[in-house]
């Protein structure tokens, strides 16, 4: 297992180089001119424009720029075009919010999704099952941005039960869960709903499968009560793999966070990414892309490993 993990980690290196080259190519071939966007038109003279391009390294040939950018990215010295802040610092400021939001969304999606899936599997092809199916279908068909707006309209604008933006009350700092609770409810729901839908469907079908399996039949034939059969055998065997699908759904969460953090004005990485895209802040875009790719790859690896733990039949070669 240890050797397997190391090998997988090593395999990530060429993939990351691929990711960085691809993202860099997209940026470097862009027709727009970041120097022009960043330059202050009042102070801009022909010379200052040239100076700015040189400062941003825009005049170096592509491969040289790539090498320079990547080496400063690795040493942590890469700086935002726009703010001159170290990109790692900017990400460090935003990461906790995104992680907290992601964790809450996973918690929400997993618990509620499993609950719905189990209820469905226990009464397959019933009215309850249909409702659950419809719920999960809606869950992954609903546009994040619209769902968020509708919740804001209902719970913030009309009912005024929950705040519509921000992560904590004015003047508060730190991570006081009580203070922050009302602020994270709506974002968690929006971000977690897609996950919920996948989990519910997954649990339903793997529960149904488990209930058909030999060991369940054996348990039943031994005269065990139905509840014991469900909980001890079917549930345990079908829920462990659920944990692993979270790893594979990371890209979904990251994509969703871009929208959710934007609509709810949460100071997370997704919003940093959107701001950077519109400001042509290439160092920030590049770093976030690579950062997300690492997260996705590690998520996949963790899922594969956990899957092995959950299902001993899998061998790592």
């Amino acid at each position: 297992m240890g050797r397997y993990i190391v090998r997988r980690l090593l395999q990530m290196i060429p993939l990351l180089i691929g990711v960085s080259v691809l993202s860099y190519a997209i940026i470097i071939l862009a027709p727009g001119d970041p120097a022009k966007l960043l330059a202050d038109p009042e102070k801009m003279t022909a010379e200052s424009y040239v100076a700015m391009r040189a400062e941003l390294g825009l005049d170096d040939p592509g491969p040289v720029r790539y090498a320079k950018t990547m080496s400063s990215l690795i040493t942590g010295e890469l700086r935002s075009f726009r703010t001159q802040q170290r990109v790692v610092d900017a990400i460090g400021e935003r990461l906790p919010t995104s992680l907290a939001l992601g964790a809450l969304a996973i918690l929400f999606g997993l618990t509620l999704g499993m609950l719905i899936g189990i209820v469905q599997a226990l009464r397959p092809y019933s009215r309850v099952d249909d409702v659950g199916t419809m719920l999960s279908l809606t869950g992954f068909s609903i546009p994040h941005f619209w769902f968020a707006l509708m919740l804001v309209m209902l719970f913030s604008v009309r009912l005024r039960w929950l705040p519509s933006s921000g992560i904590r009350p004015i003047g508060a700092s730190g991570w006081n869960p009580l203070e922050m609770a009302p602020y994270v409810v709506l974002p968690t729901i929006v971000l977690g709903t897609g996950l919920l839908a996948y989990v519910a469907r997954f649990v339903r079908s793997s529960m149904l499968e488990a209930l058909e399996q030999d060991y369940t039949r054996t348990a039943r034939s031994k005269g065990l009560r139905e509840r014991v059969v469900v909980v001890r055998h079917a549930l345990r065997n079908s829920l462990l793999p659920v944990i692993t699908i979270v790893g594979f759904l990371l890209p979904l969460l990251i994509g969703g966070a871009v929208v959710v953090e934007y609509v709810f004005a949460l100071p997370g990485m997704g919003r940093l990414a959107v701001d950077a895209v519109f400001a042509r802040d290439y160092p920030v875009i590049l770093t976030i892309t690579i950062f997300s790719a690492i997260a996705v790859m590690i998520g996949n690896l963790a899922a594969d490993v956990l899957y092995g733990v959950a299902d001993p039949r899998i061998r790592y070669g």
């Binding site: 990711v19 691809l22 890209p251 994509g255 871009v258 895209v277 892309t289 996949n300």
Partner: peptide, 21 residues
Amino acid sequence: RFVDVFLSIPVFMLLLTVVAI
């Protein structure tokens, strides 16, 4: 591997960048 590279990039962010640019 080429497919893997694409798969590990968050698609929506990539699209946002590409379409904006």
